[in-house]
């Protein structure tokens, strides 16, 4: 430490120089477009004149006042919440089972779990559409077995979007929980058993609390990705069931109302950031004592 302290003043510019390429890339590729989008959201738009650079809060006022946008935002976060909850319910046991598997099976199942992430989003979503669509395998089987008379609607439904998004986002939760499980001392579970806890009690009282940080950070990843998802809602929800991301796209490309689209995007970003920060703060406060350092 002493040597480092002595050496620091002489090379104080070095860390900045070394990180400059990264910082420049970050500025050019992320900060600049975001700033431009934010700026754009304050411009005004009329059908007659198109975009003008006079600044106003009109776009935000419109979004906040219009029920149409309320529905879209409610749907966006409702969908994200549903995907997150289902991912937790499926992903946590999945990670636990994965953790208990022997090495060979684990490698195979890890591939199965990560599968959805390896398939391009359009292919995967169209696959779901083929599988669950009006004339899809599921509906045709059910109809032919006489279990249903009219096909179950999946396309252009909220359920459809939640199912397809859970499929692709659940792996993130599994990975977060699994990483947490690997850091856990397996002897703690054995200790709980030896002290008289049943298997269920040992999991609930000893394993689950230890993997909560993994579950919670996995939730955050899944929620953020679900709330900002575009391709899956675009294909399955289409223009009938818009979410914030697809609404933005529509304003930009169909209505040509770029400023309004930008305002939706900015509101989505701000809401997600707020949720992330509040969540993180809450998690840190709750687990700081036992899990840091």
């Amino acid at each position: 430490m002493a040597e480092r302290a002595l050496a620091v003043p002489r090379v104080s510019a070095l860390p900045y120089l070394l990180s400059a390429p990264g910082l420049i890339l970050y500025a050019v590729c992320l900060v600049a477009p975001l700033a431009m989008t934010a700026l754009l959201s304050f411009y005004t738009f009329t059908m007659a004149t198109g975009i003008s650079t006079s600044m106003s809060l009109a776009n935000y006022a419109e979004i906040l006042a219009d029920d149409y946008f309320h529905t879209i935002f409610a749907r966006t976060f409702g969908m994200a919440l549903a995907v997150t909850l289902i991912s937790v319910l499926i992903g946590t046991p999945e990670a636990w089972i994965l953790h208990r598997m022997n090495r060979r099976w684990r490698a195979a199942f890890l591939l199965v779990i990560l599968g959805p992430l390896l398939i391009p989003v359009v292919v995967r979503t169209l696959g779901w559409a083929l599988f669950l669509g009006r004339n899809g395998i599921v509906n045709r089987t059910l109809t032919e077995l006489g279990l249903v008379t009219t096909p179950i609607e999946f396309m252009y439904t909220f359920t459809g979007m939640v199912v397809a998004l859970t499929h692709v986002l659940c792996p993130f939760l599994v990975l977060a929980v699994w990483a947490n499980l690997q850091r856990m001392d397996p002897a703690t579970e054995a200790a709980a058993l030896s002290l008289g806890a049943s298997r269920t009690r040992a999991v609930l009282r000893v394993v689950l609390p230890q993997i909560m940080p993994g579950v919670l950070s996995g939730c955050l990843i899944v929620f953020t990705l679900a709330a900002s998802a575009f391709a899956t809602p675009a294909i399955i929800g289409g223009r009938r069931l818009k979410v914030a991301a697809t609404a933005t796209y529509d304003e930009f490309l169909n209505s040509q109302n770029w400023p309004l689209g930008a305002a939706i995007a900015v509101l989505l970003l701000v809401s997600i950031l707020t949720i992330v920060l509040v969540w993180n703060r809450a998690v840190e406060r709750r687990f700081a004592a036992s899990f840091q350092g």
């Binding site: 001392d185 054995a190 200790a191 806890a197 609390p209 036992s290």
Partner: peptide, 27 residues
């Protein structure tokens, strides 16, 4: 194992990291 009434001290101690000393002993 949970019905054998055996006390075990593990090499890694295996204390429950999310519980206090008293909670660990009381478990």
């Amino acid at each position: 194992p949970n019905k054998r009434n055996i006390g075990i001290v593990f090499q890694s101690y295996a204390l429950f990291p999310h519980m206090t000393v008293a909670e660990n002993v009381a478990f």
